[in-house]
Amino acid sequence: MMLWVFAAIGALIILGLSIYAGILFSRLHKQNKEIAAGEAKRLEYIHESIATIALAMQQGQCELSEGCIRLAVLLDNVPNAEQQGFAKRFPAIHSMFEKIKHMPTHDARKTYPKKEIRKMDREREKLEVEMEADIQTDVVAIIAWVKSVRA
């Protein structure tokens, strides 16, 4: 009789733990779906931002140097960016970024003397003129790439 009681208690414990494990697996599955949805939304936002900036550069609504900075940073935030080889696929954009990334932006510009800021602006503008054709080629390629990954 005692053996049956222990067996029944053991079975109830196993049943309870099984139900608890099922609840935990269900929560984990839901959490993983939410994370995946969040990642997909983040990636869509990055792609949309890349397309918008590239289009603005193509239409002359955004300075090429500013666009290159923004695109390089956004491309670095794409999952598996290193494996995708964006620096090699879009060399002019990354080249411009590397040449101007040391230049201060926003509030940091205010800490430099106006003469030095003008010098950096002239350097940046000269680079924009020199690299414009290559950058525009990369912009066309980026727009095509974004269309292909969103399709």
Rank of each mutant, 00 (worst) to 15 (best):
R27F: 08
S65E: 08
L28H: 03
L24W: 01
A72G: 07
F90A: 15
Q58G: 03
L55V: 01
F25A: 08
I19R: 03
A37K: 04
L71V: 02
Q83M: 10
N80I: 02
Q84D: 11
I19H: 01
G67E: 11
T52H: 05
A51K: 03
L17K: 00
R42E: 10
R89Q: 13
N77W: 03
I35F: 13
Q83F: 03
A72D: 12
K30L: 14
G38H: 05
A81L: 00
A36D: 10
Q61H: 14
L43M: 15
F86P: 04
E34P: 00
Q58E: 14
Q59G: 07
E48N: 12
Q84S: 10
L75G: 10
E63P: 04
I50W: 01
K30N: 15
R70Y: 05
H29Y: 03
Q83S: 08
Q31Y: 11
E44V: 03
I53N: 06
G38A: 06
A51S: 11
A51C: 02
G60E: 10
Y45N: 06
A87N: 07
H29M: 08
I69Q: 08
I23W: 15
F86D: 14
I46H: 10
I19M: 07
A21Y: 11
F90Q: 05
L55I: 01
D76V: 00
Q59P: 01
S49A: 13
A36Q: 14
G85D: 10
K88D: 15
A37D: 11
D76K: 05
I53R: 04
E66I: 07
F25H: 03
N32T: 12
I35C: 08
Q84K: 14
I35S: 09
L28Q: 13
K33C: 06
A81V: 02
E34L: 05
Q84R: 11
N77Q: 12
D76W: 06
G85N: 12
A81G: 01
T52Q: 09
A87G: 04
G60L: 09
Q31C: 06
L17Y: 06
S18T: 07
R27W: 04
L28V: 06
I50D: 09
I50G: 09
I46V: 13
S49W: 00
P79A: 12
G22N: 06
F90Y: 09
F25G: 12
M57T: 02
Y45A: 14
A56Q: 10
Q83I: 03
R42L: 11
C68S: 15
I23E: 13
L43I: 12
S18E: 04
G16M: 02
R89G: 07
I23D: 10
K41V: 05
H29Q: 14
A56H: 02
I19D: 06
E48F: 05
